[in-house]
Computed example of a mutant assay.
Amino acid sequence: MSPAPDRATARRRRQLTTAVKDAVRDLNIQLALLNRRFGSRVELRDVDWTCLDLVNRHGPLSPTELARRAGLHPATLTGILDRLQKAGWLVRERDPESSDRRAVTLRAVRERNAELFEVFAGMNSRMDELCDRYTDAELEVITDFLRRTSTAGGDSAEELAKG
């Protein structure tokens, strides 16, 4: 076997890997822009929206669990929760399971989700159209890639948080 095809194959692999990384960076930029515009439409700061989305997807959550998932210091979270509660996006409920009477659980106000869905309707429609272009097998590969990318991002964020 000659070394030329191996070098060409390795070069092509590096180019494809770089293209994937560039596409993920572009996606990050566009989603950040979308989230900022979305947030201004529903009067939520980026970090508020992140916390609300986490409670909507994984809740109800304790404030400690939300702080962990959002990568926030618990003291920072207090102001965010105050804003979300004041705006009617979430409620703090006493945790009946806890012996600590101060313990609360955060629950999203599901009745408000219609407002979120309305603002994201354009993106949801575009995603449906995009997914229609792929086979089930391709969607499984895309889902796997995105989940692994999310895990890599989370692992990297934790690594940076440790210093």
Rank of each mutant, 00 (worst) to 15 (best):
A67E: 10
R41V: 08
L61P: 05
V47D: 13
A70W: 05
L44H: 08
Q30L: 13
T50V: 12
A70L: 04
R69T: 01
G88P: 07
R92L: 10
A23C: 00
E65Q: 08
L44D: 03
L44E: 05
L81D: 12
R41D: 12
D46Y: 09
R83A: 13
D48C: 05
L52P: 04
E97M: 02
P60S: 04
K21H: 13
L81I: 15
R92S: 04
V42F: 07
L31E: 09
L61G: 04
R25Y: 09
A32R: 12
W89F: 07
D95C: 04
D46A: 13
L77S: 10
R107F: 01
G88Y: 00
W89M: 00
R41E: 14
R68L: 07
V104M: 01
V55F: 06
T50D: 13
D22N: 10
H73I: 14
A70T: 02
K21M: 09
S98F: 00
I80P: 11
E65K: 09
P63Q: 05
T105H: 05
I80R: 13
L84E: 02
A67V: 06
L44M: 10
E65C: 02
S98D: 03
F38R: 06
S99E: 14
I29P: 05
D53L: 09
L31M: 09
L66H: 02
N35Q: 14
G39E: 08
R36P: 00
S40M: 06
R69W: 03
V91W: 10
D82H: 15
R69Q: 11
L77E: 11
T18V: 08
R110L: 14
D46C: 00
A23N: 01
H73Y: 10
A75E: 15
V24E: 09
P63L: 08
L52S: 02
H73K: 12
G71L: 00
R68D: 09
I80L: 10
R69Y: 02
A32V: 03
W89C: 00
D26N: 09
D22I: 11
A32M: 10
L72A: 05
T105W: 14
D26T: 13
D100G: 00
R57G: 11
R37G: 13
P60V: 02
S40T: 08
L27H: 08
F38P: 03
D48H: 14
P96R: 00
E111P: 08
A103F: 02
R57P: 01
T18N: 13
E43G: 09
V55Q: 08
D100Y: 03
G88R: 00
P96G: 04
V42T: 06
P60Y: 07
R102E: 10
L31A: 04
N56D: 15
G71E: 02
V55R: 04
A23Q: 05
V20G: 07
W89V: 04
T76G: 10
W49I: 05
L61A: 03
L33Y: 12
